[in-house]
Design a protein around this nucleic acid. Structure first.
Lengths: 188, 188
DNA sequence: GATATAGTTGACAGGTAAGTCAGGTTACAT
DNA sequence: ATGTAACCTGACTTACCTGTCAACTATATC
């Protein structure tokens, strides 16, 4: 049985040094995802959502919650990229999952709630723009950062950024560039 | 592993991250359906009632309990199949979601926790075997039933079943056959 | 620099659900 | 048949909810 880790408004408030009333207002405004208990209407916040919210607002992430903010999912199949990327990301402290199939990537992004998605734009049979579009149109993925690996001659780089990508690296580039940008996006 | 049909208050409490005393109060207030054992007055909660309660209150549903519902996810794009299938499934009491993209389907299977996946084997660009393989290799999807819609001349029918599909209907077949098999699978 | 305005946060109080603890009993596994 | 873990109840404590209001902050305007 999985013990799900959730926070009360009071705990969340203490973590970020504000009044609990303020946390409730964030929730009411839809900026912080939470669900309610049936009784008094107590709010419960999943740690992943809370950490995502903190990252989104450049607020410090408490050490004991930091693990939830180092998860990275890579959707790619090119072995050079998956192996090299994984290694580079691990070296900067990330916990890396790799999926070469978009269905599998979908299950992982919803199930493991990674903080960052590394998306290979060259992946055959996968419409990266559609994925971006889906993620950006859903509030539950608002906190997921997206780093696109684009082909060298890509003329659509601006399109990726317009479509919701947070950053972009070139397929041909050094893998340390990838991990550096990832680190930046995770604000670690 | 014997299947759980009922939960104790302690188990329910752990599933939703509250104290067992709180669960008992939900039951006393009539918000959560349960019955009592004659002896000490132990409460027992049917999983379907519990899952319904969780869904009603927008609380997260644990993977291993999600099978106790009538939610169906269909991964298909053929309009004839999606429309006809949806209608047939709704007629036997299912709650149906349809996705035509495999990434989106992945996010939905992890996010909405359907009890049944209807998978169109003809879908272009999607490797159904890979999906089956992934779902069957992960314990959190062990209880998700899978119904494959195979092309008429499919000679690989046994391969689908070997790969983990619970049942199979022909693309050309009647939609009532699909809903009948779905119903059967949901009652397991 | 001073002032006005809008938006956000903190403080307080009254009500109530949720958590804790202790003592007793049953359910279940062996 | 027996031992133990888990559940029950009741009383008590803690902490969250709502509403309101005052104080603070940021921004714009003069």
């Amino acid at each position: 049985m999985n013990e799900l880790h959730v926070l009360t408004t009071g705990e969340a408030a203490r973590y970020c040094g504000v009044n609990f009333r303020t946390v409730i207002r964030w929730i009411e405004r839809g900026q912080l995802k939470a669900y309610k208990l049936p009784g008094r209407g107590d709010h419960r916040i999943c740690v992943e959502d809370f950490v995502g919210f903190l990252r989104d607002n450049a607020m410090p992430v408490p050490n004991e919650l930091a693990a939830a903010s180092r998860k990275v999912l890579m959707l790619a199949s090119d072995p050079e990229l998956t192996a090299g990327g994984r290694q580079a990301l691990q070296q900067v402290g990330c916990e890396v999952d790799v999926a070469s199939d978009s269905f599998i990537a979908g299950t992982l992004i919803a199930g493991c709630k990674p903080a960052l998605l590394v998306l290979d734009a060259n992946l055959a049979g996968v419409n990266g723009f559609q994925i971006l579009d889906h993620l950006r149109s859903r509030s539950e993925y608002a906190n997921v950062r997206i780093l696109v690996v684009a082909p060298a001659g890509e003329r659509d780089q601006q399109r990726w950024l317009d479509g919701g990508a947070d950053a972009l690296v070139l397929q041909a580039g050094d893998r340390t560039e990838l991990s550096a940008k990832a680190k930046l996006l995770l604000e670690m």
